[in-house]
Design a protein around this nucleic acid. Structure first.
Lengths: 331, 331
DNA sequence: TTGAAAGCGATACCAT
DNA sequence: ATGGTATCGCTTTCAA
C-alpha cells in the first residue's frame, strides 16, 4: 500500500496525499478528511526510505558511546532516546568500545546512515592529543556534533559538560580541611573528564600549599574487585582518604579497607563519583559526586532542537556538579 | 557524489558501479579495480535511503526494551548492538517504558522504520493476558520477532529464555535443605519471568511438603532503599531467608537486616538475581543467580542470522541459569 | 562482462 | 485547492 494506491482510492493525486501526510495547509478540509479516512482504513504508513531519499534526512540522530552497559552512559542513552523521540527523532546506537581506532570507525560508520546529528556520549571522545580527535572535526563539517561531557573546540561542535574540575577540587579541599594529608587519587582513564578531575585534585593541593605526591596517584581498572586487589598489592602505600573518578573504584577501596580491617570513615574517608546505584549498595554508603548526567543531556537536546530549528546556540555549556555526602566521609 | 558521478569518472555505467558496490561476481577484475579506485578517491558512500528504497530494507534491526538504564537490559543492548553490527546490521533503539500502552506504541512506531527484525528485550513483553500481547503477534505477521527472556507462542516469534523457574526452584530447595522454613519471596512485577520465578519458589515448597505462605510473598519496587523501607514497615513479618527476583531488592533486604541489627548470613540468608555489580558492591556480597544474559543474546542473534539466511530455526530455546554462591548464604 | 532503462515511493515545483 | 511530473540514488531485469 503506497501513496499511489491511496491516491487512487481517495480519487485524488499523489500530490494531495503527500500534502495530507505532511499536513500542509493548502488542502480542502473535505478532501483532507477523505484522504485521511482512506489512509486509516488501509493502515497506510509512508515509506521512510522514499521519504528519506527526497528529503535527504530520516529524522534520526546517531548516538555513540563506548559502552552502554556502563551505568552513566546507559542513563544518558535512555534519556536522550526518550526525549529525542518526543521531538520526532529516532536514535540509532553504536557502541564504539574504548579503542581509538574503533571509536573513529564507529563514528565513520554511523555517519554513513545520513543521520541528522551526532551525539558523542562520555568524555572518552575528547582528551588525548588533537590528532586523535581530528576525525570529529571532520564529521562536524557535515552534521552538527554534540558532546556529552567532553570538550573539543571546533565549528559545529557543541559541548555540554559537568564541571568535574570544580567538583573534585571542592571534594579535595573538604578532605584537606578535615585534616587529611595523604589523599589517594584513583582513576582509570585519560579521558577529558579524568584530566579535569585530576587537575582539580592537584590544584586543591597546590592552593593549600600541599605537595602533590606522585605515589598517591593510582591507575586501576574501574572494577570493584580489580581495584581492591590492586590496592591490596601495594603493601607500603599509606593514605588517609580516597577520591575515585568512578564509583566502582571507590567501592573497590571500601572492599580493600574491609579486607585490611581498616574502618571507614573512621580511619580513611572515601569519595566516589557518579552517584550510581553502587554507591548506595555498598557498606557504608558512599559519598559521591553527582555529575548531573540528565541535566547535561537535557541541555544538549535543547541545543540540538534550537540548532535544527535554525537558531544560533552557544558551543560550550558547563553544569555544576553536586557532592552527595553519605557515610564514607565524616566532613 | 553519487553513483552517476562515480560511473562517469570510472567511465562505466551505473549498473557496473552498483555491481562493484555489492561485489557481485560478474564483473571484470580490471573494471572492478578501476571503479574501486575512483570510489576510494572520492570518498564515495552509497546513499542508504536510495538503497533502502530499492531493497526495501536497510539492514537494521529494531531493539525495544522498557529501560536501557537497567543494567540487565543495557548489557543485552550492548551485546546485541555490537554483534549485529558484526553481521552488517545497525540497531535502532526504542525505550518503551513499562506501561502497556507505551510498549504497544513503541513497537508500532519502530515498525514504521521498516526494520528487518524486531528484538524485544526483557520479560516484560510477555506475561499478563493474551489480549495484551496480541500486538506482538501482529508484528510477527510482517517481520520476525525475537524475544530475549520472554515467551509468546506464535508464528514467526522466536524466544530465547533463561530457565528462571528451575533457577529459583533450585535456590529455594537449597534453602529448604539448609533448614529454612520462612523464605521471603520479593518481586516487583508480573512479567513472564517473574511468574516463572514465583512458580519455582512455590513448587519447591510443595514438592517438599511445605506450605506456600501468602504473607511471605511481597511486592516492592526494585530499589535498594525502597525495599529496605518497605521491609522496615512490616513490623511483624518474620522470615529466615530471602529470595529476590532482582539484585536491587536483595540488597534492599541486606540493608533492612543491617538496620534491624540482623546478621547475614548468620540469622537470615539472602539470594539475589542477575549477578549484577550491585551483588558484589554490597556487604556481605550477594549470592545471586546468573541468568546468562549474554548467552541468551548470542543465541538470539544466531537464530536471527540463520532465519534471515533462509534457514528454518526453532522457536523456543531455553538456557540454564547458574547460582553464584557468595557470602549471603551459608549453604 | 557490460549497459540501458524501468522501477522503488516519496517530495516539491510549476501549472491550472 | 489540486494535479502533473521531474527528481532523489540506487537495484535489477533484459539485451547486447
Amino acid at each position: 500500500m503506497n501513496i499511489y494506491d491511496i491516491a487512487k482510492l481517495a480519487d485524488v493525486s499523489i500530490a494531495t496525499v503527500s500534502r495530507v501526510v505532511n499536513d500542509s495547509s493548502k488542502v480542502n478540509d473535505k478532501t483532507k478528511e477523505k484522504v485521511l479516512r482512506v489512509m486509516e482504513e488501509n493502515h497506510y504508513t509512508p515509506n521512510v526510505f522514499a521519504r528519506g531519499l527526497g528529503l535527504n534526512s530520516m529524522k534520526t540522530v546517531g548516538l555513540v558511546c563506548p559502552d552502554v552497559s556502563d551505568n552513566y552512559m546507559a542513563k544518558a542513552v535512555a534519556y536522550l532516546e526518550k526525549n529525542l523521540r518526543g521531538y520526532g527523532y529516532d536514535c540509532i546506537l553504536y557502541c564504539s568500545g574504548y579503542d581509538e581506532e574503533d571509536k573513529r570507525q564507529a563514528v565513520e560508520l554511523i555517519l554513513q546512515k545520513r543521520i541528522d546529528a551526532l551525539v558523542l556520549i562520555g568524555s572518552n571522545y575528547a582528551g588525548g592529543r588533537d590528532e586523535e580527535t581530528s576525525y570529529i572535526n571532520e564529521v562536524a563539517g557535515q552534521i552538527p556534533v554534540f558532546m556529552i561531557n567532553g570538550y573539543i573546540e571546533g565549528e559545529n561542535i557543541y559541548c555540554t559538560l559537568a564541571d568535574d574540575y570544580q567538583a573534585v577540587y571542592d571534594a579535595t579541599e573538604e578532605l584537606i580541611f578535615a585534616g587529611k594529608r595523604r589523599i589517594l587519587f584513583l582513576s582509570n582513564s585519560e579521558s577529558f573528564s579524568a584530566m579535569q578531575k585530576r587537575k582539580g585534585y592537584e590544584d586543591a593541593h597546590k592552593n593549600h600549599g600541599l605537595p602533590v605526591l606522585e605515589e598517591l596517584r593510582l591507575y586501576t581498572e574501574n572494577s570493584i574487585h580489580g581495584t581492591r586487589d590492586r590496592l591490596l598489592l601495594c603493601r607500603n602505600l599509606v593514605f588517609d582518604s580516597v577520591i575515585a573518578t568512578e564509583d566502582g573504584m571507590a567501592v573497590g577501596a571500601l572492599k580493600y579497607a574491609r579486607a585490611r580491617g581498616i574502618s571507614v570513615p573512621g580511619e580513611i574517608s572515601v569519595v566516589g563519583y557518579n552517584n550510581s546505584e553502587l554507591s548506595i549498595s555498598c557498606e557504608p554508603e558512599l559519598t559521591t559526586v553527582d555529575a548531573r548526567g540528565e541535566i547535561l543531556c537535557k541541555s544538549a537536546i535543547d541545543s540540538m532542537m534550537s540548532l535544527l530549528g535554525g537558531e544560533k546556540i552557544r558551543q560550550k555549556t558547563m553544569i555544576k556538579c553536586h557532592l552527595i555526602k553519605r557515610h564514607t566521609t565524616d566532613f
